[in-house]
């Protein structure tokens, strides 16, 4: 049951998008988000949509995975659309019933917001679908490394994140073991009222916490044994090298961005 949970939803592959330097992918995503929020017209969104579809096709990940990624956020999407529909009051009234007034502008704005957020989610999903969490952590560490000069604990944060990623499967396995052990002792985890189930969760969480602390202690000792002393003077086995394709991808993105700006001005 817990095995099905995957964090980051990475789909291994070797498409062009997979092979892009993760640092560039993050920067491209950033420009993409700016692009979506820069223009106010549907044509601007159209440019963004073309870019998204183009990138998704290149990633060779089936479109339905992207639609799936929208599912958990559908309530938020619908709420945003509905809010705009009912509360935008400018423009011609096209529908009126008691106190509800819907204007033509409200319709267009709510569709606009819906599409904009949909594109935003799909674009971000593309990053996590094509980049493994550990690579992503690494890229974030490197992109943020200038902040080290401002005494930001960039290395420490990245190390914490990568250790967390490393221990997710281990802790899931352990949770399952504890659950079985407690079930064998008569704990009702899957049945009973909500409060009863919440109470029973305590019997799983307490052993899990205790064992996590023990693991943390042992891991710290093992890291010390392997000469860990923080980020200073560390070299890396994982080399992030930018290739010509990364610069080309960045250029294409910038071209889309400029195109978007020009279309917005028309």
């Amino acid at each position: 049951m817990l095995k099905d949970i995957t964090i980051g939803q990475y789909f291994p592959g070797s498409s062009l998008i997979h092979r892009l330097d993760p640092r560039f992918k993050i920067i491209i995503l950033f420009i993409y988000i700016l692009m979506l929020f820069a223009g106010d017209s549907f044509i601007c969104l159209g440019v963004g949509a073309v870019f998204t579809v183009f990138a998704i096709l290149l990633s060779r990940i089936p479109m339905k995975m992207f639609l799936k990624s929208l599912k958990p956020l559908l309530p938020v999407l619908l709420l945003t659309a509905l809010m705009n529909l009912f509360f935008v009051t400018s423009g011609d009234v096209i529908f009126k019933w008691k106190f509800i007034k819907i204007t033509s502008e409200a319709v267009s704005i709510s569709i606009f917001m819906f599409v904009r957020i949909t594109l935003l989610i799909m674009g971000s999903s593309l990053l996590t679908y094509t980049t493994s969490p550990i690579t992503l952590t690494d890229a974030i560490e490197r992109l943020l490394s200038p902040l080290k000069k401002l005494k930001m604990p960039v290395h420490e944060l990245a190390m914490m994140m990568s250790i967390a990623l490393r221990f997710i499967p281990t802790l899931f396995e352990e949770t399952e073991k504890i659950m079985s052990a407690q079930k064998a002792r008569g704990a009702e985890i899957d049945s009973g009222s909500l409060t009863a189930r919440a109470k029973n969760m305590v019997s799983i969480l307490v052993p899990l916490f205790i064992s996590s602390f023990r693991r943390a202690d042992e891991l710290a000792t093992a890291m010390e044994c392997r000469c860990y002393r923080g980020g200073e003077g560390r070299t890396r086995l994982r080399q992030l090298k930018s290739a010509p394709r990364d610069y080309i991808a960045l250029t294409i993105t910038l071209m889309f961005y400029i195109c978007n700006l020009i279309v917005g001005k028309l």
């Binding site: 550990i134 490393r166 023990r214 891991l219 093992a222 000469c227 560390r234 070299t235 086995l237 080399q239």
Partner: peptide, 27 residues
């Protein structure tokens, strides 16, 4: 004793490299 509690990285080769990374060994 516990292999799970001494492996730092989620990729095998990076875990093996962990000590060398700490020591600043060139790539």
């Amino acid at each position: 004793q516990n292999p799970d509690n001494q492996i730092v990285s989620s990729v095998v080769e990076e875990d093996v490299a962990f000590a060398l990374e700490n020591l600043g060994v060139p790539y």
